[in-house]
Computed example of a mutant assay.
Amino acid sequence: MKALLNHRSIRKYKGDPIDDSLLQEILTAGTRASTTGNMQVYSIIVTRDEEVKRQLLPLHFNQQMVMQAPVVLTFCADFNRFNKWCKQRNANPGYDNFLSFFTAAIDALLAAQNVCIAAEEKGLGICYLGTTTYTADKIIEVLKLPKGVVPVTTVVMGYPDEQPELTDRLPLAGVIHHEVYHDYSEGDIDQIYQQKESLPLTKKLLEENKKETLAQIFTDNRYTLKDNVTFSKNLLKVLEQQGFMNNDRTE
């Protein structure tokens, strides 16, 4: 509970390496995550080599923690291994569709979260990189991912060189629904976002970005419609290229 409730995204790292035995223990914890049908349709690419990290750096928008952190982990939805096993055991796999990608992506993210919690429990810092799906096509090239494998998230890991404050979260009442979904009234929305909107950080962001509301920073600056559409199209092409869009096959 302590590790969970004190999670911080770390973006500055010391140069100290992570011991092989410690990394092995953390990765083993990752493999104990829940998984669909015990198929474990994911793979984890462990990157320590400076040259490979240099190739990954621009694909993660030149975030320097990619180079600072001693370990970069790329979590992939992976039906390649499972498909090969099926074929070698005289079974006909039907996993070249979107549902199978979604299943494998869930498996990969569950493993990633186990890894992150285990790392934080051992005194390491982590940060998820949401850029992975934006540049999945280029990451596939760098990491030599075969058909049936798609990167879904990246985690940098190392010993923290900073101790940031805990990031704010919405109140529990804002995300929990009892028995059925209860849609939000205007008053509910005002109440749920009141604390976030009143933070000193929010005031600073509004001044820096010359915006009227925090919501506008998200829609106009951080996650724009144009970017969402561009990255969506790119990811859909990747899914087709990697063999996950054959949604009409029946046998």
Rank of each mutant, 00 (worst) to 15 (best):
T74S: 07
N209P: 00
Q191N: 11
T154H: 00
H178S: 07
E251S: 09
H7R: 15
L170V: 02
K87N: 06
L214Q: 05
Q194A: 15
L56W: 00
F61Q: 11
D188A: 15
V41H: 10
K226V: 10
H182E: 10
E186G: 14
Q191R: 15
V41E: 14
N97V: 02
T132E: 07
S100W: 01
E121Q: 08
T153Y: 04
K233R: 12
R89H: 15
T133L: 10
D19C: 14
K12M: 10
R32N: 04
T230M: 03
M157V: 09
Q191Y: 05
F82W: 02
A108L: 13
Q64Y: 08
I117K: 01
V175A: 04
L170S: 00
S100N: 07
L109R: 11
Q195R: 15
E120I: 07
Q64P: 12
D16Q: 08
D248T: 11
A108K: 04
N38I: 12
F218P: 06
Q195T: 12
Y159L: 13
I189L: 15
A173E: 10
F75E: 01
A215L: 14
P93R: 14
N246D: 08
C86Q: 11
L225I: 14
F101H: 04
F61H: 12
D227F: 01
Y193V: 04
D188K: 13
L27Q: 09
K204I: 00
T131F: 08
D190T: 13
